[in-house]
Nucleic acid binder design. Structure first.
Lengths: 302, 302
DNA sequence: ATTATCTATTGCGGGAATTGCAATAATGAA
DNA sequence: TTCATTATTGCAATTCCCGCAATAGATAAT
């Protein structure tokens, strides 16, 4: 019983039971421990807390004061512990999520509404950006990313869903060009490049669905942006060929505004992945939101 | 660092320094201790408080909450400790004193006024009674008593002053009786007995100032009371001989209302004594009041 | 008064827990 | 890729703590 709090608890037990021996019984220890703990507490404070003979124990004025006030403190501290414990199990607090921009605008509204309906106690912040953020520094509880493979950004992650991509262009554009039958033909086309760091060249690794042959197509691009939706609109406007996730262009394909180019060739797989700060075990709110997104995204036809 | 508080302090140091190693330097211990303390605290709470990689440490939401609240608690507890420490040195609080009835009415008003002027921060309660009170049970900080010798009532006491007593009677009474020349003659007198337990007999041990001979005088008494002032008034009224402290009868003797009987024979010494509950060291207020009484009483001519 | 009983304290020995060191794994920068 | 820094963990030695028994003290009962 060397800790300060343990000494206080011991002292309070003596005060309650008005006796060292009785306190020892209650605390399940020996009277000698009680003596030592109280003595050390008194020594630490430099004040006698208990007036004691071998037959009776009563509080000094300092002791009465100390007992009253520490009792309140202890209760408060227990309450803090309890409410802190609740963070692991209860759905509460603030949830801060980073997500890709286009993905967010296309698919997040539904899951977020569901989540908020189920867990109204959780305050939710969603930051939409395609930049790879430092999840620790920016203090996010999770970050959704669409990328080829888990980078070294964060230690723990969870793959959620494969995101299909397609090469698309507008029928107008295609009818004005020679049709492309191989990735090599792309060099003769205007390509629309998604790029976060606005470099002037890009490479599309295309694999044939049947033969498995991979051809790296070094494409010169006519237009580049770090926003998929804008690229899609440019493609619709007949500005060239774009490599975009299906969830962005699916509607335009259905309506005939865009058609797939080289449909037998596939770009490298990319995944919707959730990244987390180094939690050993996910907090309840984070876990719940992750599951909410996961189930919602699995129902989508991408 | 097994105590709860010590764990919290360690955790807060890590939060402040944002690093286990830095916290170890500040706390003057090794990083391994820090790791273990924080781990045990997290285990106790069932919640992860710190998100940590080997390069960076940051608070979880639970950790932020816990840090904020425990910081406040710790500050409060430190303040409690400080204010408790003050009980030993500072003059404050409540001082509860028991004193003899007649002594109190005759001599306490002065010292009390002095004390209150010097130490206005101390609230003072004086209970006047001649009954031997249980100083612990009644929760007095000190008890003044006038008695032959320290009884087993209390462990610690301090003799303050010899209280002279005299056998006295009124001139009227004495002129109507045969003069007493020896304690043995008292059996023929009306004696006025001070007694707390109203028995019907009393013994006055009288010692000759010169020869040192002690004669126990078994006196039959005409009147008994547990109040010295009333006995004095009875003596003045010529009701008989009383054995009373000089501080009660001095004025009556000076004015000639009472005269000393058998002035060469002295009763057993009795002392004004201060009794204390089992303090190992007297609290400041108790000490101060004791000294105040002691110096005041030493100036009196009893 | 004296004895008996209950109580707080203290010395001591065995044992458990904690500490610090060194090795390991992991992370971020050069 | 390498390197430096950092949190973690295993291990050994030490310290510290606990409980038992003996002691002194205080109250109740005889």
């Amino acid at each position: 019983m060397n800790g300060h709090l343990e000494q206080i608890r011991t002292f309070l037990a003596v005060a309650d039971q008005s006796g060292f021996a009785k306190a020892a019984v209650v605390l399940g220890t020996s009277p000698s421990s009680i003596t030592r703990a109280v003595a050390e507490l008194e020594k630490r404070l430099g004040v006698q807390l208990l007036k004691r003979t071998t037959r009776r124990v009563s509080l000094t004025q300092a002791g009465q004061n100390y007992a009253d006030r520490t009792r309140a403190i202890l209760a408060e501290l227990d309450q803090i512990d309890d409410s802190t414990r609740a963070f692991q199990t209860a759905l509460q607090g603030h949830l801060s999520v980073s997500a890709p921009l286009s993905f967010g605008t296309h698919f997040l509204a539904g899951p977020i509404a569901d989540f908020r309906k189920i867990h109204p106690g959780v305050r939710l912040s969603i930051s939409l950006t395609d930049q790879f953020v430092d999840i620790m520094q920016e203090d996010f509880d999770m970050a959704l990313r669409i990328s080829a493979a888990p980078s070294d950004l964060s230690t723990i992650w969870r793959k959620m869903r494969l995101v299909r991509r397609s090469l698309v262009a507008s029928p107008d554009y295609l009818s004005a060009q020679r049709p492309a039958t191989s990735p090599r033909d792309l060099r003769d086309h205007d390509c629309l490049s998604y790029t976060t760091n606005l470099a002037d060249t890009d490479t599309w690794q295309l694999t044939n669905n049947n033969s498995g042959v991979t051809i790296p197509a070094h494409v010169r691009f006519a237009f580049a942006s770090d926003n998929g939706d804008l690229l899609a609109q440019m493609a619709i406007a007949g500005q060239g060929i774009a490599l975009l996730p299906d969830f962005i262009v699916a509607q335009a394909i259905d309506s005939g505004q865009l058609v797939r180019v080289l449909p037998t060739w596939s770009p490298p797989e990319i995944w919707l992945t959730a990244y987390f700060p180094p939690y050993q075990k996910l907090p309840a709110a984070v876990e719940a939101f992750t599951i909410c997104i996961e189930s919602s995204v699995s129902e989508l036809q991408l």
